Simulated scan of single mutants.
Amino acid sequence: MSQLKNVIIPEELIVSKIYLIRGQKVMIDRDLSEMYGVETRVLNQAIKRNAKRFPPDFMFQLTVQELSDWKSQNVISNKEKMGLRKLPKVFTEQGVAMLSSVLNSETAIAVNIRIIRTFTRIRQMLTDHTDLRLEVEQIKKKLDHQDKNMEAVFQYLDELLVRKEAPEPDRKSIGYQFGSGKS
């Protein structure tokens, strides 16, 4: 258990290794193996031995086009590209969680806990931002409604000003008049 305390992976490093591929937040096998302190081939061997634990929504292999897109988006150097002899496997949050049962070492457990907490924090931040966005939309709708009301008020005030500036027509007085002499 003492090893769990010694594993320190900065959250920023984990976040920088989470990519959006096929509309999912994923981590690449070589990044995970580096964090776990094992070779990528060792990680992949463990996955192969436990293939039933990794359905397609937990792990999938990149296509040639996805790998090319990923390399260009992340400006991978030639040295780093050399290490990619095979199409990498990528793991969703659930796949990363499953890795802890496949790589049953203290380091793997500690790293997985850190990664899962980071995924959770990212999800919470997205939820918070969604709530904030909804509140902003509600405020915009209210302001839009108020703008329309203000336009109506100003239009009414303009009409009143136009009426006030126009000469009043002679009005026939109504009611009882004193001293008219008629009875």
Results as ranks from 00 to 15, higher is better:
R53Q: 12
R53T: 07
P55D: 10
P55I: 08
P56K: 11
P56Q: 11
D57I: 06
D57H: 15
F58W: 06
M59P: 02
M59R: 07
F60G: 01
F60Q: 00
Q61M: 11
L62C: 03
L62H: 01
T63A: 07
T63S: 15
V64L: 11
Q65A: 13
Q65R: 15
E66D: 10
E66Y: 09
S68M: 09
S68I: 08
W70P: 01
K71E: 13
K71T: 08
K71P: 00
S72R: 15
S72H: 12
N74D: 07
V75H: 15
V75W: 14
V75N: 15
I76G: 01
N78S: 13
K79Q: 14
E80M: 15
M82A: 15
L84T: 12
L84F: 15
R85W: 09
R85M: 13
R85K: 15
R85I: 09
K86D: 11
K86L: 10
L87G: 00
P88V: 04
P88T: 06
V90I: 04
V90Q: 00
F91V: 01
T92Y: 01
E93T: 01
E93R: 14
E93K: 08
Q94L: 10
Q94A: 13
G95N: 05
V96Q: 05
V96A: 06
V96P: 02
A97V: 08
M98A: 15
S100P: 06
S101D: 12
S101V: 10
S101I: 11
L103G: 03
L103H: 07
N104D: 14
N104L: 12
N104T: 11
S105D: 05
S105V: 10
T107R: 15
T107S: 04
T107V: 14
T107E: 14
I109R: 12
I109H: 08
I109S: 07
A110S: 06
A110L: 06
V111Q: 03
V111R: 04
V111A: 08
V111K: 03
V111M: 07
N112H: 13
I113S: 01
I115P: 01
T118Y: 05
T118I: 08
F119C: 01
T120Y: 13
I122R: 06
I122T: 02
R123V: 05
R123E: 12
Q124G: 03
Q124P: 01
L126F: 04
T127F: 08
D128A: 07
D128M: 07
D128W: 01
H129E: 10
T130C: 04
T130F: 06
D131L: 10
R133M: 14
L134W: 09
E135W: 04
V136E: 05
V136S: 04
V136M: 12
V136Y: 03
Q138V: 02
Q138W: 02
K140D: 06
K140G: 00
K140H: 02
K140A: 05
K141F: 02
K142E: 10
K142V: 07
K142W: 03
K142N: 07
L143N: 09
L143T: 08
L143M: 13
H145G: 09
D147R: 14
